[in-house]
């Protein structure tokens, strides 16, 4: 070829690219700080269970909130069409709660309103996440994934006293 080949980039555009990259790096840093320094994390992979038997044996046969030691709780939650088991839990303010959530039928979602607890519930998988709630009040947990006709009616309450 005889024509001159060059990557012509307008100086204004060059600066725009720099600015864009800088902006994205800044956002990524903010996210990493929140995630890895402050400990606001997303769920990671847990154990796998058999959705056909999970509601019959083991902790989800008798789902609910249990005190491990003072101020430390675990909550086994079973999602099914179209309710959460249990429907209501009560903990003292300042408690650390570890949720173990699974489904015995279709996919569901679990979102504890006004907190960062928000997970997908996939049959065969256990969604595990730990939170600490300091503020007393009634926190609703709702199903956030379409799970059938009465999906809108699927919710429960966590009472923090």
């Amino acid at each position: 070829m005889t024509t001159k080949q060059s990557m012509h980039i307008d100086p204004y555009e060059k600066n725009w690219i720099r600015l864009s990259i800088g902006l994205l790096v800044m956002f990524a840093a903010a996210v990493a700080v929140a995630g890895f320094a402050l400990g606001i994390q997303v769920p990671t992979s847990e154990q796998r269970v058999d959705p056909k038997t999970v509601a019959e044996v083991g902790p989800w046969a008798n789902p609910g909130l249990r005190e491990l030691s003072p101020g430390k709780y675990e909550a086994y939650v079973l999602a099914q069409t179209w309710q959460f088991m249990p429907r209501e839990m009560t903990v003292p303010a300042g408690s650390e709660i570890t949720f173990y959530i699974t489904s015995k039928d279709v996919q569901h979602g679990f979102k504890l309103q006004d907190t960062n607890l928000n997970v997908q519930i996939v049959p065969g998988q256990v969604s595990k996440l730990t939170i600490t709630i300091d503020e007393p009040g009634e926190y609703t947990y709702i199903c956030t994934e379409y799970c059938g006709l009465a999906h809108a009616a699927m919710f429960g309450k966590l009472i923090v006293e």
Binding site: A34, L38, T115, N116
Partner: peptide, 29 residues
């Protein structure tokens, strides 16, 4: 550049506001 700076500013404000909500809601491990 003016148009895009307005865009960037909006981006920072809107994104930042959700980020602040995240931080205000405490730790999730």
């Amino acid at each position: 550049i003016v148009v895009l700076l307005i865009f960037v500013l909006t981006l920072i404000i809107l994104w930042g506001s959700v980020y602040v909500i995240l931080l205000s809601r405490g730790v999730t491990v």
